[in-house]
Design a protein around this nucleic acid. Structure first.
Lengths: 148, 148
DNA sequence: CACGTACGTCTACATCTGTAAACTGTTGCG
DNA sequence: CGCAACAGTTTACAGATGTAGACGTACGTG
């Protein structure tokens, strides 16, 4: 590694007093499959592996083991936490969907649109992926923003 | 594979007569590093490995071999093609940046915003990632769209 | 109290990614 | 004409990912 390197791990201890629900900005990347698990969790906050499995079983056809592995990896990545509920675990997300979405969106924006939102929207416009309702919605949004 | 499975490979021979510049919609996924190579290519269409390397060397600090490997993989993935230029190769992209951007954007949109653009923009708005210029730009865009 | 059962963990394994060294064939130069 | 330089191809290898079976352990039950 000579010059620059993305996805670096900042091992330095941040002296800031933020111990609670880590809003982590650079935690290990969540893979796509893992994200699917997070999706379930985000919908049904504390959930048992069984419940999560049920969801993914029907939507993705995954085996129980698969789900458990993913849960394990997510725990290791600090994206979710477990609280004991008798004999089983209750999984709860530490990484909020909002933060995740932000990270992913920001990443795409930076990688493909020079970090600017307008070009992104422009792109969708060119692709004719914007319906009239989309346009109306967007205009409403912009108006709202002006009121701030 | 029981139920659904994204990213499937359509090995079936398509009887359609589209041999030129494949606008391929489901070619093997391009990795992030590979995308960096594509970036260079998209800027400087036909380029030698040496030229590409030069770019990536300064921006990413990669070794020549690394770049060559990436080029090789991209060729294998049919994302780029080579045309012989004397002793060396000239690499040219088959996958256009536009198509790539579309695929990536669409993917994000579907994965995180239910396929709707408005929520995406809304998200950026909430994150206060929209500058006044962004907003103005967007409004201009919307106006343009109305004129169609 | 022995056991099956339920649930989490460990192990497995093929493929993909990031990175790069080793190898090979070709060609220009001395 | 032989060899160094060059450019593409192979091989390498660790870590991530997708997927899942094997294993270990605690617990309720007969």
């Amino acid at each position: 590694m000579t010059t620059s390197n993305p996805r670096k791990r900042s091992t330095s201890a941040s002296p800031s007093p933020s111990p609670p629900k880590l809003t982590a900005a650079d935690l290990p990347p969540i893979s796509e499959s893992e994200a699917k698990v997070m999706d379930v969790l985000w919908q049904t906050q504390p959930a048992t592996a069984e419940q999560i499995f049920a969801q993914l079983q029907s939507s993705k056809g995954w085996h129980v083991s698969t789900v458990k592995t993913l849960l394990g990896r997510l725990v290791k990545k600090n994206a979710i936490a477990t609280e004991t509920d008798g004999r089983r675990f209750l999984y709860r997300s530490l990484l909020s969907r909002d933060v995740y979405v932000s990270l992913e969106s920001r990443s795409l924006l930076d990688r493909l649109f020079g970090g600017k939102v307008a070009p992104l929207v422009s792109h969708f416009a060119e692709q004719r992926k914007l319906s009239k309702r989309d346009i109306a919605e967007l205009r409403r949004l912009l108006d709202e923003l002006d009121h701030d």
